[in-house]
Amino acid sequence: MTASPIELTPTADDHRIARYAAAAIALSVVEAAIPMPLPGVKPGLANIITLIVLARYGWRDAVWVTLLRVVAGSLLLGQFLAPGFFLSLAGALASLVALGFAMHLPARWFGPVSQSLAAAFAHIAGQLVVARLWLVPHDGLLYLLPFFALAALVFGLANGLAAAKLLEETASIASRPAGATNDRT
């Protein structure tokens, strides 16, 4: 029997996506350690990475980075395929759809903050729909809605500002030709 090595040649795109996904995963793990008053309420720091990737490389890369973060982050936290995983997945998918629309807002008037707010509210909406339909099939869940909305407002704003700041500070890096020199920064 001969060995049949499977060779995958990662492209520059793959490397870039993996690097951003790694940063997002690290942020998810870090924020899992922050105690929160309500289960399900999280700052969503990893969304800062999603916003940056969206601004620099477009929606497709943002989807990749976000989904990799959800899957790998849940593996690291022992949440894979647990209810929490499906909640994050639902939230992530909803916010990616929202970002798909928000990114087309005129850049002259709307910045990362608008995108972040749209993503944050879509995230809680996606989560609550899945939670209501499947995990807690009871209207009592909706009493949590105002608290989730408040969290989305605060963290959506904060993450948007953080993304805007980081985009500005790293503008010089991004202006280099894509894929060529970004590997060592």
């Binding site: 807002l105 005129p106 002259r108 008037w109 709307f110 910045g111 903050v113 608008s114 707010l117 749209a118 407002l153 704003l157 948007g160």
Partner: peptide
């Protein structure tokens, strides 16, 4: 940006 304020 102005739109961000509106969104907020």
């Amino acid at each position: 940006k102005p739109g961000d304020w509106a969104m907020l």
